[in-house]
Design a protein around this nucleic acid. Structure first.
Lengths: 219, 219
DNA sequence: GTAAAAAGTTAAGCATACTTAACTTAATAA
DNA sequence: TTATTAAGTTAAGTATGCTTAACTTTTTAC
């Protein structure tokens, strides 16, 4: 049976797999804020249920069945976020934690009504694709992360990784919003930080932050 | 600490206390669909935490602290129900089960936003009072239950006990909605059922159903 | 190629919230 | 008033999802 915990494990594994990373024990443990031991435990259960393929010491990967559940949770999460912003005027940085809980406690029928209310959007307010009811995934527009940009060019933010409320707060405060335009002023190979100019204000972004921001180049 | 289970226990006790009934072990067990043993167990814990007063074999009553939590849960439930109906066009009979889960998984800030969206309503779509943020409870209009009416009179429904989805479905199907007008055609003392006429259609209602419907007399 | 460090696993234990079975207390009916 | 029934409680046991501590495997650095 698929419990709340299991849904969260599957979602975490999915998000790792999606960026091409192997979902290792400690990465998943870190994302879920539990011990490595808890991951090993759960990996066995999920594997037995046919939701992941798991070889000891070698990380985890979703099966088709596991991916189906993960996509369903992700769909709920992103629709809730979109809805809370659109219907209740909540802000970018408030909705993540809220959706993190609501995603486990809404019926299919409610989620479909939200989808309809929003006119079946392809992307959420962070630019992330919203899985469709039929399990398909809207194609993500070609983008590069801010950690890969070139000094001198101008870019537009088209997607932000919304995994962390603190990051969202920071970006909001610094006007690094969806569709914001920025000029890359400098890159420091010392710490892989990037200096950008937004609204004529300079801002230095750490490697970790820049890796969470996805942009496209403006001609 | 107040977990989801504890919130549900407190809510159940509150709803029993409110109608003047003593919250006995088996009544609460029945409402929560758990064994009597589970109630005895939990009663001890809630009592230790100062949320209920409990004397073995003598039922349970909320303390001021327990009532505060119960009212907070009830507020969430009724605001969620109202919101799902207003914002998403869900129906009377769909929202109870949904709200039953959502009430445990929304922040104060979200609930307040919903309250604001709805312009701080005093009553939910079942006519039930919505506890206010400050813990007060809107006054319920004087009403009698359908089990107490007099044959020959005409009444209007002003409140319905929304504890059960099946009941809601039945009422919806038979046009027994909030504000519906009905004429009392007959009362059978044999089984305490009531025969009413709604939209010129006669309908016999069991004692249990009639006790869940509250009306006011129309001159 | 091996030693040290990092990552992962296993085992034992815990809290929560239940269950069933056995028992006790209270209510009721003759 | 007492025997029977109903209601309530206790005790023992279970599943879930964690923890810490001890141990094993893999990776890395020399």
């Amino acid at each position: 049976m698929s419990t709340i915990s299991k849904e969260n494990y599957l979602k975490a594994i999915f998000l790792h797999n999606r960026i091409g990373e192997n979902a290792s024990t400690s990465k998943v443990a870190n994302k879920l804020s539990v011990s490595n031991a808890a991951i090993s435990d759960m990996a066995k259960k999920l594997s037995q249920e046919g939701l992941i393929s798991y070889e000891k010491y070698r990380g985890m990967e979703l099966t088709a069945e596991g991916e189906k559940i993960a996509l369903r949770v992700l769909r709920r999460h992103r629709l809730w976020e979109s809805f809370l912003i659109k219907a209740l005027g909540m802000s970018w940085n408030e909705v993540h934690d809220e959706a993190e809980r609501l995603e486990h406690h809404s019926s299919d029928s409610l989620i479909d009504k939200i989808d309809e209310y929003l006119s079946f959007p392809d992307f959420d307010p962070h630019g992330e694709p919203i899985p469709k009811k039929n399990g398909t995934f809207p194609k993500i527009p070609k983008s590069i992360s801010l950690s890969e940009v070139q000094v001198g060019n101008t870019y537009q933010i088209i997607r932000v990784n919304d995994q962390n409320t603190e990051l969202m707060n920071y970006l909001t405060k610094n006007n690094l919003l969806l569709n914001s335009k920025l000029e890359v002023v400098d890159k420091l190979s010392f710490d892989n930080s990037v200096v950008v100019k937004v609204d004529n204000k300079k801002n230095s972004l750490s490697e970790k932050i820049s890796k969470s921001i996805f942009v496209k180049i403006l001609k």
